[in-house]
Design a protein around this nucleic acid. Structure first.
Lengths: 176, 176
DNA sequence: GAACACATGTAAGAAGTTACATGATTAT
DNA sequence: ATAATCATGTAACTTCTTACATGTGTTC
């Protein structure tokens, strides 16, 4: 999903500034399955304002730079709908972790155990975070999404915990 | 994981040509968690040959362009080890599917059911593929990686199947 | 005879990140 | 006083994909 669609999607849930969008994708409800930087968000919003996909209302506020509050237009809503309808190419399961595991075997097998341990605690962090977010979340779909994330993290953690022994059981080091 | 590291990693498992690497990442054992195009693989290999990270042996073959068989050098192995040791930043769980679900709620709620159905059959495809690959795979770590992928696909499918009703139970459409 | 597998490579362009520029306010 | 939060924006750069260029042999 490109930044434009992501921004439109977020705006479909309510108006927001570029700054707020950034916060949502890095810390908020969207941080679990997306990412974006200022350098892509601001230009995207400016561009889409020019195209009439979003509307921009400026709120003056004393000292700080004026707030630019964006909202979805009808054209933007239609465009978003088009984007979401497009061939949903499968999310690539890109995983540096799995690649690292596979390559570690050839290069530094003694690191495999570390990799798995690190990974398990990473899952624990994510699980805690997701549970915290779940407490605040009311929307049916939003909760579904968080619970989906939670289920995945738990499944991964469980698999690693249960199967770790197979990889880390060191081949007997005694000679003969 | 950038293309360079990916290529080095694949070469750590045995020598290969650029063409073969491309096949492995698009159809083969690596297709489940990585991707790369010719336009990135070939330049990466040429560059790394210049840097001494890989060695290149040319195999003439009649009519076709000469095969360039690459293999990892000691420097390359060391470099790869460094890369794998680096702060394992968490695989981002970027998911267009989840984003689409969330946004569909606001824009075309009637599509939510379709999205989930499409997704479930996508998981079924992946599960079948992974099982097929598992039959041929002998290496302990390789099997582990495939089984991990399988477990994730199955967990996702199960979650969707079990929880689908919560989202697709249409709010009663009768008036009054 | 059309399309695909083999085999390498380049150039143009997309899409994004990082780092900078600016500057007040508030918390530690 | 030092850092973080708020708030926007731009320019340089990285990284990768897409599409092209070239050509044979094999399969449908």
């Amino acid at each position: 999903m490109d930044i434009r669609t992501l921004c439109l999607g977020i705006l479909s849930l309510g108006e927001a500034t570029g700054y707020e969008i950034k916060k949502m994708v890095t810390e908020g409800r969207f941080s679990f399955f997306s990412e974006a930087s200022f350098g892509s968000i601001y230009p995207a919003l400016t561009q889409m304002t020019g195209e009439g996909l979003v509307a921009c209302r400026t709120e003056a506020q004393g000292n700080r730079p004026d707030k630019k509050v964006y909202s979805l237009t009808d054209a933007g809503r239609a465009y978003l709908e088009e984007q979401l309808a497009e061939a949903p190419r499968p999310d690539r399961n890109r995983s540096d972790f799995l690649a690292a595991l596979l390559f570690a075997e050839a290069v530094s097998p003694e690191r495999i155990e570390d990799l798995i341990i690190e990974r398990v605690s990473l899952h624990d962090e994510q699980i805690a975070l997701l549970k915290a977010h779940l407490k605040d979340e009311q929307g049916t779909v939003s909760r579904f999404v968080l619970e989906y994330g939670l289920a995945m993290q738990q499944a991964a953690r469980r698999f690693l915990a249960e199967n770790r022994a197979r990889l880390t059981a060191q081949p007997d080091k005694r000679t003969g």
